[in-house]
Computed example of a mutant assay.
Amino acid sequence: MTETTKPDANDEARAFLAELPDADGALNRKMGISLTEVSRERVVATMPVEGNTQPFGLLHGGASVVLAETVGSVAAGLAAWPDGVAVGVDINATHHRSVTSGTVTGMATPAHVGRSSSVWEVAITDEAGRRTCTARITCSVLPRSRVGL
């Protein structure tokens, strides 16, 4: 393909998201998660702290993991698309500092993208740019035909 006929990365991301049955996701809507950047190089989303806290008023660790799973899964899905489907098999998170207000941002970048699996590092930061959580998500890549798509 010549440089002039390559599909635009934004067009590719839009086509991928358009193919999903519920691109926003019900849980993402409940948590207030909003995708702000989607590309094969990285996926970024924001999430409000308000409404996602634990009883002590801190951002719930599980909410951070939901944000990490969202950006990591979208990243893995786009990397596998259009021939494969990514399914999560492992996620872990280390929480570095608490957050009590504002918005956090999750950014997934590839650690490994292969034919049968992909691994994504997710950095979650507060509004000051301080890392609040580091997560890693591993996805298996399955042929679309195997999952009925």
Rank of each mutant, 00 (worst) to 15 (best):
residue 1 M to Y: 13
residue 1 M to H: 13
residue 1 M to K: 08
residue 2 T to E: 15
residue 2 T to L: 14
residue 5 T to M: 13
residue 6 K to F: 13
residue 7 P to F: 15
residue 8 D to N: 15
residue 10 N to W: 11
residue 11 D to E: 15
residue 13 A to N: 13
residue 14 R to G: 10
residue 17 L to F: 14
residue 19 E to M: 15
residue 19 E to P: 01
residue 24 D to K: 11
residue 26 A to F: 15
residue 27 L to K: 08
residue 27 L to P: 01
residue 28 N to C: 13
residue 29 R to N: 05
residue 30 K to Y: 14
residue 30 K to G: 12
residue 30 K to E: 15
residue 33 I to P: 00
residue 33 I to E: 04
residue 34 S to I: 13
residue 34 S to F: 02
residue 36 T to P: 01
residue 36 T to W: 06
residue 37 E to R: 12
residue 38 V to G: 01
residue 41 E to V: 07
residue 43 V to Q: 02
residue 43 V to R: 02
residue 43 V to T: 08
residue 46 T to Y: 05
residue 46 T to V: 08
residue 47 M to P: 00
residue 47 M to C: 03
residue 48 P to H: 10
residue 51 G to K: 06
residue 54 Q to V: 04
residue 55 P to Q: 09
residue 56 F to E: 08
residue 56 F to G: 07
residue 57 G to T: 08
residue 57 G to H: 08
residue 57 G to Y: 12
residue 58 L to P: 01
residue 60 H to S: 13
residue 60 H to Y: 15
residue 61 G to F: 07
residue 62 G to P: 04
residue 62 G to H: 09
residue 62 G to M: 09
residue 62 G to D: 05
residue 63 A to E: 03
residue 64 S to D: 06
residue 69 E to N: 06
residue 73 S to L: 03
residue 73 S to P: 00
residue 75 A to E: 03
residue 76 A to K: 00
residue 76 A to N: 01
residue 76 A to D: 01
residue 76 A to S: 14
residue 76 A to R: 00
residue 77 G to R: 00
residue 77 G to I: 01
residue 79 A to H: 10
residue 79 A to E: 07
residue 81 W to A: 11
residue 81 W to I: 01
residue 83 D to F: 09
residue 83 D to V: 09
residue 83 D to R: 12
residue 83 D to C: 04
residue 84 G to D: 05
residue 86 A to N: 02
residue 87 V to S: 10
residue 87 V to N: 04
residue 91 I to K: 00
residue 93 A to M: 10
residue 93 A to R: 07
residue 94 T to E: 11
residue 94 T to G: 12
residue 94 T to S: 15
residue 95 H to K: 05
residue 97 R to I: 03
residue 98 S to R: 05
residue 98 S to G: 12
residue 99 V to Y: 03
residue 100 T to F: 06
residue 102 G to P: 01
residue 105 T to H: 03
residue 105 T to Q: 05
residue 108 A to S: 12
residue 108 A to N: 07
residue 111 A to G: 09
residue 111 A to C: 06
residue 111 A to K: 10
residue 113 V to R: 05
residue 114 G to N: 12
residue 116 S to G: 14
residue 116 S to F: 08
residue 117 S to M: 10
residue 117 S to L: 04
residue 117 S to C: 06
residue 121 E to L: 08
residue 122 V to T: 05
residue 122 V to C: 06
residue 123 A to Q: 13
residue 124 I to V: 14
residue 125 T to R: 14
residue 129 G to Y: 10
residue 129 G to W: 10
residue 132 T to P: 00
residue 132 T to E: 01
residue 135 A to L: 04
residue 136 R to W: 04
residue 137 I to E: 00
residue 137 I to A: 04
residue 139 C to V: 01
residue 140 S to I: 02
residue 145 S to F: 10
residue 146 R to P: 00
residue 148 G to A: 04
